[in-house]
Write a protein that binds this DNA or RNA. Structure first.
Lengths: 149, 149
DNA sequence: CTCTATTATCTCGCTGAGCGAGATAATATC
DNA sequence: GATATTATCTCGCTCAGCGAGATAATAGAG
């Protein structure tokens, strides 16, 4: 029963990280008067910003797996807290572009910063082939996890 | 702006995996008439079983970050779907022990099996030092993510 | 061995996240 | 210019999860 392949052990480890990370997200959310979905929304928006893609309401809803009504509600909440700004897209005035307020980013760093820095510090002690192995593994995992959709 | 350290790239990759995994969980949940929390509950219970620890209602609630009322509701739902069995602990009859039904495990494998097998397959091509690097990284990440609690 | 304190779970009533259906407004097509 | 399509929002509803408190079993003090 406790006979586990080394590979499965790693898969379980990865899953534990994802589960635990979800709990921290929820904690961060409730501490700042938000809900887990709101935090995930902010993460998606920051990813979009980093990637240079326009973040519209509909796009966000698709990312979060919400319908349009739910998406509007998330955006209303985040806008109400001042974490977000709505702007009508001048090129296509049906669309609403979303921009994260810098304060929201700071809030996130205050909570997740230590976690991120810890992780980065660990990686500094890895040699090139080791970081490369981690990157390869995570890329594969990411691909595997998106492939079922 | 697109100047990113190699370490941060890996952190973002890990985060993307966790976010994406959360979406798959939600998808699996709704496909089987459940909610994300129910799926997370099953995962926790299977972990407990694997570790050989008793899974009580209160323990589960703590794992999920729910209060007792919410915990009872989750258990009621899962029991109603036949994914779970309640048993009064004979040693301490205040406690309720939870056991996952084998059918629920099969259901999970049908959905997540391909994902897991893909990931395991990737790892088979890694040599010992590489798997060791992945394990070390994930352990560190797990520790970092639990440390903020 | 009873009385009280503690622990584990459950019940009740309520708030609000997210859904379905449909309204509104801007753009695209013919 | 009439119609179809796309993007977002509004309304009413369901149900997950919360707070407060009930219930039942165990532990401890006298």
């Amino acid at each position: 029963m406790s006979e586990q392949s080394s590979e499965m052990e790693i898969v379980h480890l990865l899953r534990k990280v994802t589960v635990e990370f979800g709990l921290r997200q929820a904690e961060f959310a409730s501490r700042n008067g938000m809900h887990p979905t709101d935090v995930r929304a902010l993460i998606c928006l920051l990813d979009a910003e980093r990637a240079g893609t326009d973040a519209t309401a509909g796009w966000l809803g698709a990312q979060l797996g919400l319908n349009s009504a739910g998406t509007t509600a998330v955006i209303d909440r985040l806008e109400g807290l001042g974490h977000l700004t709505r702007t009508r897209d001048p090129r296509d005035r049906r669309r609403v572009l979303l921009a994260v307020d810098p304060r929201a980013v700071e809030l996130g760093w205050a909570f997740f910063g230590p976690l991120i820095e810890n992780t980065v510090t660990v990686l500094r002690d890895f040699d090139e082939s080791e970081t490369e192995a981690v990157r390869r593994f995570l890329s594969a995992a990411h691909q595997a996890v998106t492939a079922i959709a």
